[in-house]
Amino acid sequence: MDMIWQGIHDAFSLTIQRDPAIVKAAILTLQVSLSAVLLATAIGLPLGAIVGNKNFWGRNIIVIFFRTGMGIPTVFVGLICFAMFSRQGPLGQFQLLYSPQAIAIGEFLLALPIIFSMTQGAVSSLDRRVADTAQALGAGPIRKLVTLISEARIGVVLGIFTALARCLTELGIAVMVGGNIANRTRTLATATALETSRGEFARGIAMGIILLSMSLSFTLFLAILTRKKNSEVTR
């Protein structure tokens, strides 16, 4: 137990001192995860809203495919990405293996099914009159889609946040296609695992605390945003 308290104590001093290795890992984690989630949102959000609102042949197959993807092990995504980016792989010529871009692509594959499925679920559970009312008032296909997303925003935001949380903390992809190279592809999750295996318990906990702080900051940010949106209802 003493070891844990000592770890927490050391973690705070390392965080306050802004240990360069920790800062670099934190910045890289944020860059990689945010770019992956932004890209996944740009694709998954409209796609999820369309599939959630339309009935067409093969819809259920698409939904099942993405829902299965929600629980996919990160090591498996890492393995697929490794096979794609390795020198013999189909994308080997781009030399992406062991780069932050490779981690971002892997995390994009992780985030996309979450954002798609949560958006699809939120939009399909909306009142049928949302789409009809928007169309009856003259909304074109894009505005109709925006309206559907806006009406289902709580579920949509939750989906984006879940995807971000999964990307921030994932380990399998970062290790397999990032290689955990110091100052280049070391994320907070891989660094935490490495420091703990080295017996550097305090550094491991410090990184864990930073991960937790990031998660808390996003939660607070979203809570404020949702509260602001709700207060607009009365205006």
Partner: peptide, 16 residues
Amino acid sequence: VYLEQSPFLFKGGLRH
């Protein structure tokens, strides 16, 4: 413009 029997109001207030 079509108005449904039981109309739906969007989230976001009267002006919206």
